[in-house]
Nucleic acid binder design. Sequence first.
DNA 1: TTCCATCAAAATCTCGAAATTTAGGCGAAT
DNA 2: ATTCGCCTAAATTTCGAGATTTTGATGGAA
Lengths: 218, 218
Amino acid sequence: MSYDTDIYNALRHRLMTNGFEHGQKVRAEHLRIEFGCSASTIREVLFRLSTIGLVEFREQRGFRVPEQSRALIHELTHLRVLLEAEGTAMSIRRGGVAWEARLTAAHHQLSHLEMRLQSAQDTAPFIDLWFDAERQFHETLISACGSDALRDTHHQVYCRFRQQLMIEDRAFDFISENIRQHQQILDAAMAGDEALTRHKIHDHLARHLMADVEREPA
Amino acid sequence: MSYDTDIYNALRHRLMTNGFEHGQKVRAEHLRIEFGCSASTIREVLFRLSTIGLVEFREQRGFRVPEQSRALIHELTHLRVLLEAEGTAMSIRRGGVAWEARLTAAHHQLSHLEMRLQSAQDTAPFIDLWFDAERQFHETLISACGSDALRDTHHQVYCRFRQQLMIEDRAFDFISENIRQHQQILDAAMAGDEALTRHKIHDHLARHLMADVEREPA
DNA sequence: TTCCATCAAAATCTCGAAATTTAGGCGAAT
DNA sequence: ATTCGCCTAAATTTCGAGATTTTGATGGAA
């Protein structure tokens, strides 16, 4: 793994989790010192990240983290539904036992984590683990779709989605509903029911579309 | 427009049309001389292009244009159908008169060009114009979808698709069928029939999925 | 107080060169 | 004739400096 790529991955991960505030400026100069490399190297990496939308570039004004936007979360959720539903349907057709095994394994990990979350006093130490497990489950869903282009596209959308969502305090408020929905997706997929699986994926992601409605009355 | 961005757009355009051969190495050193800038600047641009898949980066071995792959064309076509059908359906719901006007205009331009193509002796001078007009028509279809994220994603997929397809000798073999299909898409969209529009978009792009079957018997 | 010009500090942007790595040719040994 | 290792040329990667631009603060005028 090259130097460039290391920094690229490190920054991408930080941008997807909680390393930066929305709208905050990304100071290439500071990162240069932190990573101990030249400004050009940082600049390269930031340009790469700007191409997929994880940072915004403005001429002569450097890079900054995109503002959080309810509208953008909607758009990215919509794309996720589109890509994940299609990718999962393709996986059901092409997948086979190996895929079913991977999916069951991913769900088991996630499920196990969510169970522990329900009874935990302090959810903080689980946050990173849960996000990883959730990502793993959703990526496994589409992993047998046979289209690298679809997986790549989904990955980009997913990164931006995760960045927009960041860590919400209410992340685990609906954990029991999450457990139920993940189980339903798994069941439908294992039963080979494409239509039902699409439907359940839509339902699962739709909560991000509902957020506005929830808040309106408050 | 910044220097960086100029070079980015120039190279992207060249990669999408016929500036490079598939699999050919992209020599940063040569481009540096051609564009009269430093190696770092070229490198930045190439990294950006690699993030969306227009060039491939291999550590210590520079950048190269992706190989042409029938499978990849299939995958990108599939994504185009997914994104364009959805985006157009949204445009039908949200778009209004302004969008209908834009779409009619784009189709008129394309249609006019295709008519001239049919009767032209030498199609070569029309190629670039036609590709631009076709892109314009398809981008206009989704232009009122209300989702920047969908438009951005479609743009990336479209760039890669165009690069994979490049200029085929047979580009205009089916020009009369193209005219008919574009007209059908326009009619369905103007009639506000989402389902029919989706269907016609699928039919129109499906010819890229059929290419294998066509060639198999030969 | 508010607005605007000026100036200094900090950040961005581009470049050319040095260090590192790959690519390809040449000749010797099997 | 083929293979292997060496050597040179060419390409890459990284860096730090200098030029340019933005940012933020200070001070004077309305």
